[in-house]
Write a protein that binds this DNA or RNA. Structure first.
Lengths: 144, 144
DNA sequence: CACTCAATGGACTTGACCATCCGCTGACGT
DNA sequence: ACGTCAGCGGATGGTCAAGTCCATTGAGTG
């Protein structure tokens, strides 16, 4: 299971921003150094987050990037969508065009189990959860 | 959340094989047509599964591929590893070299929640689960 | 106004993954 | 033996994400 490098970068950058005291902002260069993302690349990334309305940017002296909303209102799924991370809840791993509860492919059951776990995770987790550390929500999978 | 195309193909091919009645085998060509995977590509894939010991192959007339073990003994994680799908349980999304419960990065909590969901899914699900349809194991994520 | 800073945008390079092609090898049937 | 069938292996090409470079624009400072 993996996100794309870009998606991971996006979460990482947003995490760094959300951890700055007092809703502060930061320059792309600082974020790059702090997060280990190549400067030129994080720059493009941040732009996408601005376009998506998750960040606000300021040019020139004293410029940089700031969260556009409080951390609690920025879900991971918002960040992922902002960088075009593909979230296809209806994708069928078995290759069927039509695949749902009515017409389930052989993989449907176990596959949607995994997809839903991811979807819920992305929709429930916000930047505020990062600030708090581990959100105590219990195990993601049943303990058998 | 996504697997690579190759990983998905591998699961798909194995799923098809495990659904043949009476532990039958199939030719690469048949699997390709049935599963919608390009023939030349599934061929390479199946080879990897043979090398990994999950399949057995037979050349020439009447040849093809068969499961090397009963479906219940082939876990998804085995299939994924066979096609070199990267499973890095210790990978830190925040970019830290050292990241564990002792030295948790800000993302550690929520991130490992997701990783563990995937890992358990891959380790628990076997080809036998496919045959049975949906394994009733309850939700992957807590219901809030 | 002149200078510097930092985001913006475009063009470009690289490399991994996906996919195809073709000749070779081993197994079976006649 | 010979021919066919089907897996095996290497070489090759296409595509897209990942990463780099550079010129431009807008904003603040002296």
């Amino acid at each position: 299971m993996h996100l794309t490098q870009t998606a991971e970068y996006a979460l990482r950058a947003m995490a760094h921003l959300s951890m700055l005291p007092g809703g502060q902002g930061a320059r792309a260069k600082d974020l790059a150094e702090a997060s280990g993302i190549p400067m030129a690349y994080v720059s493009k990334l941040l732009r996408k987050l601005v376009v998506a309305g998750l960040l606000e940017s300021q040019k020139g002296h004293g410029g940089g990037f700031v969260l556009a909303r409080p951390p609690a209102e920025i879900r991971f799924v918002d960040v992922l969508r902002a960088v075009d991370y593909p979230i296809e809840p209806n994708h069928c791993a078995f290759g069927w065009g039509e695949c749902n509860v009515r017409h389930p492919c052989p993989l449907h059951g176990t596959w949607s189990q995994l997809k839903e776990a991811f979807t819920r995770w992305a929709e429930r987790t916000t930047l505020a959860d990062i600030q708090r550390g581990v959100p105590p929500r219990g195990p993601l999978l049943p303990t058998r």
